[in-house]
Design a protein around this nucleic acid. Sequence first.
DNA 1: TGTACATCAGTGAACGCGCGTTCACTGATGTAC
DNA 2: TGTACATCAGTGAACGCGCGTTCACTGATGTAC
Lengths: 212, 212
Amino acid sequence: MSWKKGDREERGYHHGNLREALIKAARDLIKEKGPAGFTFADAARSAGVSPAAPYRHFRDRDALLADVAREGFQRFEAMLATGWAGGKPDLITAFHNIGRAYLAFARAEPAYYTAMFESGVSPDLNAELRAASDRSFAVLRSAADQLVTLLPAGKRPPALMMSLHIWSMSHGIASLFGRGDGGRRSLPMTAEELLESEVLIYLQGLGFPQSA
Amino acid sequence: MSWKKGDREERGYHHGNLREALIKAARDLIKEKGPAGFTFADAARSAGVSPAAPYRHFRDRDALLADVAREGFQRFEAMLATGWAGGKPDLITAFHNIGRAYLAFARAEPAYYTAMFESGVSPDLNAELRAASDRSFAVLRSAADQLVTLLPAGKRPPALMMSLHIWSMSHGIASLFGRGDGGRRSLPMTAEELLESEVLIYLQGLGFPQSA
DNA sequence: TGTACATCAGTGAACGCGCGTTCACTGATGTAC
DNA sequence: TGTACATCAGTGAACGCGCGTTCACTGATGTAC
């Protein structure tokens, strides 16, 4: 069987693009059965190759998982940046949009989210993963940097602290209520409404105007 | 080998108290190797019994994990209640103390915390687990009920919403930074300081006085 | 109090299974000349 | 352009291992009389 290179991703030798195919297989299996519920052999089977083939691309299961997480952070960064949209239409609205993007990502990509935050893969053990994680956070950090300029110089909170606060709110809500794979708890309101009201009250506490 | 019933927990037939011993073994294994890193056979080995013995007490591995989570919620509830201390010395201070208790639990008992929130065991599938989880949340909810009475009647936020906000902040910080088993990210401040400042700003946003 | 019996927690051997990992190999693609 | 060789992604068979699960059993404890 030989494939023409019609698809942009289709290239290479025997399989075509086994590395990416294995990452996709891992994502599907994580979504189906949780981060613990997939094996190296499973991923090979899903990708339609022999159980020995993955060893050409990943040292072991953890290396594969780390690559899923790294790819996840890349997409996450892109979604957060799209939410922020360079601070348009106004800084406060754009800031709320980052939170929405955060929840949208957790909902749309529960497999990536799990690999990134709950798979036990430590970013500190993998420089590339760490860098991808840091770049995601930098979107939030940079938004906070710009947001504090709305306040008079003497009343500005530390932007780092502020971005950590927003991150923890978003992550808390996403973890508890906003997962696409059957969230663990039900709510009398949507996760988005809960986060939006939380951020609103928080910004009021810092003295931000209702809109800008 | 026969044991006198010196220890309060020591009773029963052959092993003494295998059920509790298995739960403790599961906790130790989760703490060591993560929620995915223990098996039914592992737990039996740690408890010093044959691999068939656990079947007398738990249907399968998930049932054991659910019981770890249930026991975790019981201790969690107790810690939160101790933090609140009936609203002493004053409601605002006691409210902050619940947050501290939340983080202290995640730090001191990472194995329970993992089983409760990240093991994939759904509270909805187990009535007892669900009830234990609800009782934990009820501590926070009841504290919020009392706290809102500090505000004039027309300016009181819904206590349910408020308790969900506080829960998500605490859970977000505990998950991201405040784990006893080698948290995944380092911080320029303690998790406790981060949560305390976050809650403080949030309460200011709702119009609460600095102390009461 | 003593005896006979019922109960049931835990045993240990056995099984089938799928995983992780290795190995010499095959065969398509890339490259030197 | 063609030929010979090097490279390397993927094969498939094999292995040891530990897991989950079952089974008839054993033996300590509880209970009826």
